[in-house]
Write a protein that binds this DNA or RNA. Structure first.
Lengths: 194, 194
DNA sequence: GTCTATACGAGGATAGAC
DNA sequence: GTCTATCCTCGTATAGAC
């Protein structure tokens, strides 16, 4: 038994190859060679290529929900804006540590066009962000930190900014994402409390 | 000679099949069958599958630049906000008339990860939007329609909203995109002129 | 411009031994 | 758990006739 199991090595290697070459252009032969196994040994661990793709998807989904980044109970009237900004910056930093993340996500999105199992889950994550932002903004209103105006629309816009920053980063665009997020939050949640 | 040439029919059919099944899962056999041709006849018009993909990409790029939607010379102090909103809504409406558009774009983005020819052009289009918005906002400042604050960052945010709305629409999410765009523009360009 | 027939390679997956 | 050898299918692409 290795310290790092074959199973885990296969997943990590597949993740990288899928990001570099895409699902379709990454063959089981490539994965086996890169891991240092024969194809049948690979099939011993995963019954099909689709099984690898699904397993990776489940792992991915575990770590990218709204509540992994934003903790509503920490928001007070005094720290509201700065905490909002800081929590969002966590997402940016996480993505900057995994160059492959958005490429992989892009491919699951494409898969979702043909297999609702993927799109349903991805939509659920996006809607989780919108619902989370809406709840957070509503919380901000209730504690008197911000004005109650267009809460749902603003939540949707924040979700879009997060979604799109990910996209831009995957293109290699070197924008000042920290600055964009900070400006977005300030633009959207400013205004005197009602 | 048909009124609609074989060449055009191939492109239109390919566009639809690529959107429905993806580039890789759409074979030349499928395209030939759907068009009503044999495979060699198909290869007579396009020397390879890649050639079809490239031709479609060039056609696509022609119609999605910033200047196809925003006409800076029409912006005055009095109509600035409403024209800004109206021009952006054109993009939303255009995308709503072509369900396949964002699916196809998603795939060219994925291709771009491996072939810079695609990503360079796509990045160019995105940067065209950011530059266009920045120019438009600067114009707004110069004619006294809006305040001069964070012009570049705001231009980037607007590009992101456009980019992400496209993405959300492709998921089938039925948000009120008109409302989001309107709120985005109002949130970002409001403020008294300097 | 379009066809029938076919070459050729690669990919997913399995049989059966160790 | 891992191997060698192999099967089958399907993909791109071409040869050569009409």
């Amino acid at each position: 038994m290795n310290a790092i199991s074959t199973y885990t090595t296969i997943l990590e290697t597949s993740y990288r190859l899928f990001a570099e070459h895409g699902f379709d252009k990454t063959s089981m032969t490539m994965i086996a060679k890169e891991v240092g196994l024969s194809k049948p040994a690979l099939y011993y661990h995963f019954s099909s290529k689709e099984a690898i793709i699904q397993t990776l998807f489940e792992e991915l989904c575990k770590s990218i929900g709204f509540s992994s980044f934003f903790r509503i109970e920490a928001y007070t009237k005094d720290n509201f804006e700065e905490t909002f900004i800081a929590d969002g910056l966590q997402i940016i930093h996480k993505q900057q540590t995994d160059m492959y993340y958005s490429r992989i996500l892009n491919q699951y999105q494409a898969l979702g066009y043909r297999d609702p199992a993927y799109s349903l889950k991805l939509v659920q994550i996006l809607e989780g962000f919108t619902a989370g932002f809406a709840e957070l903004l509503a919380h901000g209103v209730s504690i008197g930190a911000i004005a109650a105006l267009d809460v749902l629309t603003k939540a949707q816009m924040l979700t879009m900014i997060i979604d799109s920053m990910d996209n831009f980063m995957s293109y290699g665009l070197t924008y000042s994402y920290e600055n964009i997020w900070t400006t977005a939050v300030k633009s959207l949640i400013k205004g005197d409390p009602a």
